[in-house]
Design a protein around this nucleic acid. Sequence first.
RNA 1: CGGGGUGUGGUGUAACGGCUAACAUGCUUGUUUUGGGUACAAGUGACUCCGGGUUCGAAUCCCGGCUCCCCGACCA
Length: 417
Amino acid sequence: MKQSKLFTKTRKEAPSDETSKNAQLLIRAGYIHKEMAGVYDLLPLGSKVVENIKEIVRQEMNAIGGQEFIMSSLQSKDVWTATKRWDDDVVDVWFKSTLNAGGEVGFGWSHEEPITEMMKSHLSSYKDLPAYVYQFQNKFRNELRAKAGMMRGREFIMKDMYSFSLDAEHHEDFYQKTIQAYQRCYDRLGIGNDTFITFAGGGAFTEFSHEFQTICDTGEDEIYINREKGIAINDEVYNDDTLKKLGVTAGELEKVTTAEVGNIFNFGTQKCADMNLLVTSEEGKQIPVYLGSYGIGITRVMGVIVENLADDKGIVWPEEIAPFTIHLLTFGNNENIFREAESLYHDLENAGIEVLFDDRDLGPGQKLNDADLMGMPYRIVVSEKSAEKGGVEITKRATGDVEFVDPARLIAYFTEG
RNA sequence: CGGGGUGUGGUGUAACGGCUAACAUGCUUGUUUUGGGUACAAGUGACUCCGGGUUCGAAUCCCGGCUCCCCGACCA
């Protein structure tokens, strides 16, 4: 895309009403726009980032048998009263509204109840199991206090997956597969090394749930980790009992601040029993289904990536997530140079590589600063100076490594690695 | 929800209770410049968050509300 056509602009100054690094940089670079506290629009660049994150997660969920679907945001009161979770005293993050025709509706903060209810129409025999479904969707949570930009919002995008299994064994098998799929996601998202699967409160059905926690100063959680043993424990279940069960001592654990980027938990058969989601077993009996729930906060992950990978000049996107692979700049008013840059831009795009071409009539300083701020993985400069040095200049945003490449070899550089 | 702050052109800031609300940036026009936000000139742009009150006079003081930020609480 030509940058002159991009309607969003970069800003030199951070907005005064944002203090978190992720919000400041994403706003300055034109990825997001703030509507109100905890509510942000995704501008074209931000939307591309989110789509790229979703695509990674989508591929990994599909690989373990997930089927993508979309549930509604408006939810019926009845579904939630059945499990006693409609009451504001029980769930304090509800956004609710009334129908003009009479009656109340809620805006989905979770989809556990509606999905279970919906599945009653489709699951009736042990032969229908297992079923794994997931969606990407906006969740609404009426937080008393939104904070830290994309880290805790009132409206945000989440991937939520649900597993319906016949018995504990099948459930556990899929649970473990999901753990591995999640780890592949975080690796591909560029935060794998800082992300730990963490023992957390299990609630009514199991002793523990598992969270995926990424070390991050802006996070809200504190966990205890042992990198060698690969064990992490959330502060909320950190006690002698837990330590003994997991076979670690307090002395070998390190306390770190983290952001929760995923959470998976097991409902056992309780939820389906409560909601009467039963299937007929091989023996002809009516039995409740094992339910598992698996979430990844997509927009929060976007925030964490910015928080953890950005430097003092701006955002640094991992290659798979960046809205464009290449930021192509040209300096000077030499027409031949500009034409060469433009033709390289077309060649790269035709080769299937996403390029943001800064064709604006601006000085080099402004273009370079914008490129640093926006954070594409590769910056290519076409100028008289680069020509003197043997072609075009390629700079890696993450490392600052520079090399000069013959324009004729440029496509090969990106397609052959 | 408890506590602490905040609110002034699009953005970032300034202004003792007192002249036409200032500066920077952005944007427009022209000239200039082209490897780290080039320089100059001329323009453009604000009911100072909202509603009351005090005062000869309020961006400034008082009361109420709202907004946003931070700390805490909360966070299947």
